[in-house]
Amino acid sequence: MDYRTVLTTCTYCGCGCNFFLEVLDGKAIGTIPCKTSPVNEGKLCIKGWNVHEFIHNEKRLKRPLLRKNGRLEEVSWDEALDYTAARLKEIKEKSGPDSIGFLTSAKVTNEENYILQKFARAGVNTNNVDHCARL
């Protein structure tokens, strides 16, 4: 028997609410808002309260999808990254760096957002970086 409460941060928006995921035998069965968190003080919105539900959702994407002959197909990370890198290079050479834009997310960490803007500015040479929270 394995029952754990795992402290983590909500992935839904940039607020950073803390909660415990209630995990029974490896399966997340509930969300418990953290009362000692200075951010949310034991409260959550409806999305946060149900965050454990998407973890085991069948519709969750676990592998990259690449459109081949008009249909999305599961491919390996190597293939997806090679394809993306080649296409980005091609577009940049043909139409210039400002023909490319990057949209990042509130659902990832600060560090991941930092990496993406660095990649956009230093790697691709464009300032076209934006974020879903500004939309």
Partner: peptide
């Protein structure tokens, strides 16, 4: 734990 108070199953 981790500076917070939360439920725990002590075994």
């Amino acid at each position: 734990k981790n500076g917070h108070i939360g439920p725990h199953l002590f075994q």
